[in-house]
C-alpha cells in the first residue's frame, strides 16, 4: 500500500514538473519565486509553481496566544529571492486591528536586533473595514514591499480583493488570521497557508495549504534575538523519498512528456 502511494506521488510530481514553467509565469517568471527559506530548506517540491510566491496573499493561522506567528510573519517579510545591491530599504506596513488578536501589540524594540532592516510603518485601527481598505490601498499603490495584517476573520470576497490588489501592485501580504484549534479552516485564495505551534522543546512549523501546495511540517527554532526561523528537522511530508524511482516510472513518464 505504501509503495503504491509513493508511486502515485512520484507520478504526480513528474506531471507537475512538466507544467511548472507555465505555472510560474503568474507574475514575474519563475526566477522570482522563493525556492529556499527557513535555513536553506528546498521549497520547490512543496509548491507546484516551483517555489513560494514572492507576492500575493499568504496566511498564517494563529491563536490568541501564538506569539511565534509574529516572528514568522516578520521573517517571511524579509524573504527575498536574492538581495539586489541597489534595492533600498524595503517598506513594511504592519496593520493591526485592535482586539483582533488578544495577544497585545507588536513591540518594536524586540525587532531592533533583527538583521532584517525594514522601514517599518505601523497602523492601529479600530474597524476591520478600515483595515482591509488600508491594506488594499497600500497593496495597489506598489510602494510597500510587504504588508502584515492582523484583523478579524474576513470572507472569501475580501480575500480575493486583497489578492487582486497584491497582484496589481506586486506586493506581498501576510495575514495573521485567527483560527481556533479544532475548527475548520475557512477557504481562501491565498498562495500559501502556514501554522506555527509551540511544542514542549521546539516549534512545529506546518505548511497546511494554499494553491498547489503539498503540505509538510518541520521542527523549527526561532532565534529570539534575531528572529530568524531555521529548520532543525523534518517532521513529516508527503514527498516521495529522495532517489525513489520505480522501474515502471520511466515508461509512464512518456505519457506526460
Amino acid at each position: 500500500m505504501t509503495s503504491k502511494l509513493q508511486q502515485a506521488r512520484a507520478a504526480l510530481l513528474r506531471a507537475e514538473n512538466q507544467w511548472q514553467g507555465r505555472a510560474a509565469c503568474v507574475d514575474g517568471g519563475g526566477a522570482r519565486l522563493i525556492t529556499r527559506a527557513f535555513g536553506n530548506i528546498d521549497l520547490r517540491p512543496h509548491f507546484s509553481a516551483g517555489g513560494l510566491m514572492p507576492t500575493g496573499l499568504h496566511e498564517i493561522m494563529t491563536e490568541h496566544d501564538d506569539s511565534a506567528t509574529s516572528a514568522l510573519a516578520w521573517y517571511m517579510a524579509g524573504l527575498h529571492t536574492e538581495p539586489s545591491p541597489h534595492a533600498k530599504t524595503p517598506t513594511v506596513l504592519w496593520v493591526r486591528q485592535r482586539k483582533a488578536l488578544d495577544q497585545g501589540r507588536l513591540y518594536p524594540p524586540a525587532l531592533f536586533a533583527s538583521p532584517v532592516h525594514h522601514n517599518l510603518i505601523m497602523m492601529t485601527i479600530d474597524q476591520q473595514q478600515t483595515a482591509l481598505w488600508a491594506c488594499e490601498e497600500a497593496a495597489k499603490s506598489g510602494q510597500i514591499t510587504t504588508i502584515i495584517l492582523e484583523a478579524t476573520d474576513y470572507d472569501l470576497t475580501a480575500a480575493r480583493r486583497l489578492q487582486l490588489a497584491c497582484e496589481a501592485g506586486e506586493t506581498r501580504l501576510i495575514v495573521l488570521r485567527y483560527h481556533r484549534a479544532g475548527q475548520n479552516i475557512a477557504p481562501s485564495p491565498a498562495w500559501s497557508r502556514w501554522q506555527i505551534k509551540p511544542q514542549e522543546t521546539y516549534r512545529k512549523l506546518s505548511l497546511i495549504g494554499g494553491r498547489g501546495v503539498r503540505p509538510a511540517s518541520w521542527k523549527v527554532n526561532i532565534d529570539e534575538a534575531t528572529l530568524l526561523v531555521s529548520v532543525a528537522d523534518t517532521l513529516e511530508n508527503r514527498l516521495p523519498p529522495e532517489g525513489y524511482h520505480r522501474p515502471t516510472a520511466a515508461r509512464k513518464q512518456s505519457v506526460y512528456a
Binding site: T124, I125, A134
Partner: peptide
Amino acid sequence: RIGHHLGPRDQLFRP
C-alpha cells in the same frame, strides 16, 4: 491617502 481616511482613534506611525 490612508491618513485622511482614518478615524479619530486610528493611527499611522513609525515606531
